[in-house]
Design a binder for these strands. Structure first.
Lengths: 125, 125
DNA sequence: TAAAAATACTCCATAGGTATTTTAT
DNA sequence: ATAAAATACCTATGGAGTATTTTTA
């Protein structure tokens, strides 16, 4: 990976862009202000561009920063879509089911449900 | 972040999907096979779905896996686009320039270029 | 002078490596 | 029998926290 940027860092710059305030942004990311500051500074060093102009108040993105933030929003959105995909599969019943039953009762009880059960959950072994 | 997936993990599953082979995929990611295996397993645990069916040879993605991989390719593509944005700004001359010159010469030399220089690089301090 | 961001450290979680075992052709 | 993936264990990088200092409205 030539480009070293993490999803977490993207969340941080998006949060700062949204709140225009490091402390508030940090709270919304459930991290401390120094953690957020450090990561953003590190990201700026890695990318070789300044993302936020700290000389103004409230804090405002640079031209480059604005574009990167916009792209970060797109990326985070696409990542969220993985959740949609998971919805279709995560709740699916699958795997192995073990049933314990005492031998004297088995001949009477098992036949009463095993057929329907097996029909309903063929993916189980 | 409710969804815990890293860009590195996405690169790994995309590589395995491309090569249908853990060892080859690992080489292309410049990591060892165990590193790649561990990360993919960890990802599967986190997401709660199996991404690759290892019982077949060559290795093939599951239904869920195929969709996740497809989305991962989209995401990695969008991440690459940040590079495009950087191209426009990274090479821009900016920052602070310090010039040292001995006092006896300064009055004669500095005025001869400072004007044009400042005009050309106003973003410098 | 008060609020906000940066800096300085400390800690620990985990990505990644080496060595090895298990599992499929 | 052999190649491939999984497992076990170890190391070290860096993400995150607390405490503090610097900086800007």
């Amino acid at each position: 990976m030539m480009l070293n940027i993490s999803l977490t860092q993207m969340e941080y710059i998006v949060a700062v862009d949204t709140h225009r305030h490091f402390v508030t942004a940090a709270e919304h990311c459930f991290v401390t202000q120094p953690t957020l500051s450090m990561q953003i500074k590190k990201l700026e060093d890695q990318l070789g561009v300044t993302i936020f102009d700290r000389t103004k108040q409230p804090i405002i993105p640079t031209d480059a920063g604005a574009k990167i933030i916009k792209q970060a929003r797109i990326i985070l959105n696409e990542v969220e879509r993985i959740n949609d995909i998971l919805q279709e599969y995560r709740d699916t019943v699958a795997g192995e089911l073990k049933i314990g039953i005492i031998p004297t009762l088995a001949p009477y009880l098992v036949p009463r449900f095993i057929g329907n059960f097996y029909k309903a959950f063929q993916m189980l072994s």
